[in-house]
Design a protein around this nucleic acid. Structure first.
Lengths: 195, 195
DNA sequence: CTTCAAATGGAGGGACCCTCCGTATAATAG
DNA sequence: CTATTATACGGAGGGTCCCTCCATTTGAAG
């Protein structure tokens, strides 16, 4: 186990060529099939990749490991948007732009993200790196707004994530409704005014 | 089939005493076991009720039918709160009070509601009566606020439901965070002010 | 080529949802 | 009370899925 982990972490060590190739085939197959079908079985992923079910489980011991691996790439894209917005926009513009972009992206992946969310609920300890990076991206934008005084201070970025993330995976809302709700949430994010 | 439906709809017609008793036993068992375990198997429900699995399926042909039956009672309670708030409070107070009450109630039932939401996602056509009554309850409160000019007009009650409902079933938010987010959403619900 | 750890593939175990149908029984007629 | 019968019951078993196990194969090193 330890040996295997060390090997995985130092790519120079021996990993057989067929293993690396099958790993890539499986990941590609999983991404395709999640995009097309929404949910699927482990058998279907293995078949799509052209390998046996045992090979799939060698590379991804549990179903959630496949889901998480696919998730990782998605997170990269969102993080990049956050960093770009923070670098190029005013504090409030960045919040507005990023939250809309986040919801747009998440909405398009809703079926896959539903599966991921279920996996997280079954294994709450699995707040994996990917998810933490995503929350960090939202925090980056939100806390910058709070520092500039354009975002209320009594809500955290993680909480905003907890509000908008589940909304995107809700089957009953259209894309337009999600956008409208983001607008409303943005209004709620501004520092409260006395009425 | 038609005969059976007609019989079910007119309670005076013959339904055997054991059937009615088992129906109640099953419903009670399902409620208990959902509250205690969160999710469960059909076998466990039947066992808890002391009947065979076949009897369970006679009364509730699919898993979602059990979930929906339990859901129905929950909805009754929420609807009653909405009606009480509308009858006894000012338009804005009713919105504030009801949304907090709604989230508090839903939060306590989060594990069960997660199961229900999944069922809805698998069968989107099953926007059952119960769910519609729930949405109607939120509409009742929200639209009254809109009529009085204290709630922005460009968001519907159903959309607020779509925002807060999924939030409650999110595993990553605590009760306190949900409450704080409701406060923020309430601020966002007020008619926008120019800044 | 030899050797062997690494990797493969698929049968099968276990859990679950649901169907089917032989058996049992409540309700009704005589 | 008994006979009749539609109604209801119970659980074996089919199908699907996740995952494990291990006999077999194969890439890589000497």
């Amino acid at each position: 186990m330890t040996i295997q982990d060390e090997r995985a972490e130092s790519p120079g060590r021996t990993q057989r060529a067929d293993a690396r190739r099958n790993h890539d085939l499986l990941l590609r197959a999983a991404r395709e099939i999640f995009d097309e079908e929404g949910d699927t079985s482990m058998e279907a992923i293995a078949k799509r990749a052209g390998v046996g079910i045992g090979t799939l489980y060698r590379h991804f011991p549990r179903r959630i490991d496949v889901v998480e691996a696919v998730y990782r790439d998605d997170v990269d894209q969102v993080v990049a948007v956050a960093e770009r917005d923070v670098a190029t926009m005013s504090p409030w513009e960045a919040v507005d732009s990023f939250l809309h972009a986040f919801v747009a992206y998440a909405f398009g992946k809703r079926r896959f993200l539903t599966e991921l969310r279920e996996a997280f609920e079954k294994n709450p300890e699995l707040k994996c790196d990917a998810r933490e990076r995503l929350e960090a991206a939202i925090r980056l934008v939100v806390e910058r707004g709070q520092g500039a005084g354009v975002v209320r201070a009594d809500v955290t970025g993680d909480e905003v994530f907890g509000l908008l993330g589940p909304m995107c995976t809700s089957a009953s809302l259209t894309r337009e409704q999600c956008d409208r709700l983001v607008g409303m949430v943005l209004d709620g994010l501004r520092p409260p005014v006395t009425r």
